[in-house]
Simulated scan of single mutants.
Amino acid sequence: MPGVAGPLVHLGVHASARGQGIGQALVEAVCATAQAQDASRITLRPLGRNLPAQQLYLRCGFTVVGILPEEFFLDGAHVDDSWMARRLSAREPPGQ
């Protein structure tokens, strides 16, 4: 469906494999797949305390579009939820 925003629901890299570019490759693959299916943007919501994930998404071209304060109660404490998005490039029309 052209122009639809698609959510990135779950993505994770095992701790022993971090720092090798795997997370960035996964995010870029998701974005490429969404773009090929005519999605206009990708949205995601990393927990506010998950700074490594937020930094990864920023490196991949996502921006913070909102913060949901105290959205969750985890491990005995309220946790903010970050809302991030990345606009996908418009696809070139056939023959262009």
Rank of each mutant, 00 (worst) to 15 (best):
M1R: 10
G3F: 07
A5Y: 10
P7K: 06
L8Q: 00
V9I: 15
H10Q: 11
L11N: 04
L11R: 05
A15G: 08
S16I: 10
A17V: 05
Q20W: 07
Q20T: 07
Q20V: 09
G21D: 11
G21H: 06
G21S: 09
A25V: 05
V27H: 02
C31A: 10
C31H: 02
A34S: 10
D38S: 15
A39Y: 00
S40W: 12
R41H: 12
R41A: 07
I42D: 00
T43S: 14
R45P: 02
R45C: 10
P46D: 07
P46S: 09
G48W: 01
N50W: 02
L51R: 06
P52D: 12
A53D: 02
L56N: 03
R59F: 04
C60M: 06
V64S: 09
V65N: 08
E70P: 03
E70A: 15
E70W: 08
E70M: 13
F73W: 13
D75A: 13
D75P: 04
A77G: 11
D81Q: 14
S82D: 05
S82W: 02
A85Q: 08
A85C: 13
A85F: 05
L88D: 04
L88Q: 02
S89G: 12
S89P: 11
E92Q: 14
P93L: 09
G95I: 05
Q96M: 13
Q96N: 12
